[in-house]
């Protein structure tokens, strides 16, 4: 019982990070019908930028306690938001009318560049955040089921960001415009919505959330390297598909499901097959219900 509860808890905690990253994939897919392969690497850069900031603070002679996240997290989010917009401007916008394949290739290209930059600037070794940024202690939730304070704060931060996004998309004018653009570019344009600016907005928000997730994941797992975007990013992407890509609540649901299933699989089957479970889940979902749990129908139109 406690074993199950512990695994579920772990699953929810990992799943909330998957969800946070999945949002970036799903929002871009929603407005552009593009799989933004570079998103995972922007997320990875969030972890690295946080590392740089923390190291710089240490170098300045300050001891980086947990408080540093208050200025650093928003800072990283802003830098990545700008990077996202730059990416859209240079690699995707020129290909807006070029069909589906060219932007896909371009996205893969951007992912390669971001990875090569990280590997060459930071080296291929694992990086760790200074232990002083973690919050001490843990919370006993039920019997022997515990959760580190850092984990709890990270999960709460992820949930907070997702709620903020939900409110933004459903309660603001810009959010409504985003939903309109995701339905039909031309109609949205005729209705006076500045489609290009809305798309740029999506590329501000997605990478910002991804960057935050990068720092939180680095904090939770302790160490990471330049392949983080690939390993973790692909999982998050699977989460987006499982929930129904293009669908914001779907990304959150997919993230949680993937996290829980993986964590149960690791607990009850074997940790080494954990990754396989994610991919098999993806394949099954796509074969049985190609649109994902909450998504559009997407078999080839007759």
């Amino acid at each position: 019982m406690e074993f199950l509860a512990q695994n579920l808890l772990n699953g929810v905690s990992i799943g909330s990070f998957y969800a946070l990253v999945a949002l970036g994939y799903t929002m871009v897919y929603g407005v552009l019908r593009l799989i933004n392969f570079a998103h995972g690497d922007l997320f990875m850069w969030g972890a690295f930028l946080g590392y740089t900031a923390l190291t710089a603070i240490s170098a300045a002679g300050l001891s980086p306690g947990p408080w540093v996240f208050v200025p650093v997290l928003p800072g990283v989010m802003i830098v990545l938001a700008l990077a996202g917009v730059l990416l859209e401007r240079t690699a995707y916008r020129p290909l807006r009318s070029a069909g589906r394949l060219p932007p896909l290739i371009s996205a893969l290209g951007a992912a390669f560049i971001l990875q090569a930059l990280a590997r060459n600037l930071y080296g291929a070794s694992y990086k760790t955040y200074p232990s002083s940024v973690s919050l001490p202690g843990g919370v006993r939730i039920l019997g022997d089921v515990t959760m580190g304070t850092t984990q709890i704060v990270a999960v709460l931060a992820a949930l907070l960001l997702m709620s903020a996004l939900h409110v933004f998309v459903h309660r603001t004018r810009v959010g409504t415009a985003m939903r309109a653009v995701s339905l039909d570019h031309d109609t949205a344009r005729l209705m006076g919505i500045p489609v290009d600016r809305v798309i740029a907005g999506v590329f501000l928000i997605g990478p910002a959330l991804g960057g935050a997730a990068g720092m939180l994941v680095a904090l939770r797992y302790g160490s990471f390297d330049f392949t983080l975007g690939w390993t973790f990013g692909l999982k998050a992407f699977i989460a987006a598909i499982v929930g129904g890509i293009g669908n914001i609540p779907g990304a959150m649901l997919g993230g949680l499901i993937l996290g829980v299933v993986e964590s149960l699989g690791a607990g009850y089957i074997s940790p080494q097959w954990k990754d396989l479970i994610a991919y098999v889940l993806l394949a099954l979902i796509l074969i049985a219900r190609p649109g994902g749990l909450l998504g559009e129908r997407c078999a080839e139109r007759v």
Binding site: I105, L108, G109, A116, R119
Partner: peptide, 17 residues
């Protein structure tokens, strides 16, 4: 060689454009 992937990525984007 260290920049091989970056170079590939750049050429992929430029080619598509």
């Amino acid at each position: 060689r260290d920049w091989r992937d970056g170079f590939l990525g750049l050429s992929m984007i430029l080619m598509m454009i």
